[in-house]
Amino acid sequence: MNRLVTVAEMTLRELLRRRGVLLLLLLMPLTFYLIRRDAYLGQSVRSLLLGVGWAVSTAALFATTAARELEPRLRLAGYRPHHLYLGRMLGLWTVGLVISVPFFLLPMIDGADLRYGGLAAAMLCSVAVAAPFGMLIGALLPRELEGTLLLLTVVTVQMLIDPAGSGARLTPFWSSREIATWTVDNTDHGYLSRGLLHGLVVTALLAVGVAAVASVRLRRRRHLRHLPVG
């Protein structure tokens, strides 16, 4: 338990010291919201949610890439793979939750009329998906640049795709879009439940993906036999 918490804490400390990333985390969702603010409320809320998702994903990507060289040493120091990826996920989720708070308050301050329960649920989904998503990309792609480009592509697709279309459910942040519709447009509960389910499933799938890659990369090699001290 302590190992998990220590990894989470160090992830947090690292992120807080990276001022570029912090700026991203705070400015990007704000900018997305402001750009769409004059348009119809649903657009601005959806942009805000996408901004949060993208920012947290990028932070997750950077955190994973930066830790890559350190992880084998941590294995030797006594950590198991699950301490490392779960700990990092916890740290990233914590960061995501913390930055969600001001952005949750933003429409409130703006006097927007919407279901704030739904807004909270949508933000939770964004954050929940974003952390393992960014981690998975960071684990699979060797450099931050490629990872950032991939994230950019995904976010653009997410923005442009028709949410009712057949392929839309394959995009990772579809859940927050669906819930946003329930939040703003006063539709029926179906949107909320579909969104929550999608968010849960995608988070789980991405987390399993991260676990799989980490377990392979940090595995106990077969050629090495460990004996107790004799």
Partner: peptide
């Protein structure tokens, strides 16, 4: 992993890479 061969280690292992191996922001 090697293509062939075996390694047996008795006790705890410590490793120091040639460069890197530290966390930039900590």
């Amino acid at each position: 992993s090697p293509d062939a061969g075996e390694v047996t280690v008795s006790g705890r292992l410590g490793y120091c890479p040639q460069s890197g191996g530290t966390a930039d922001f900590l």
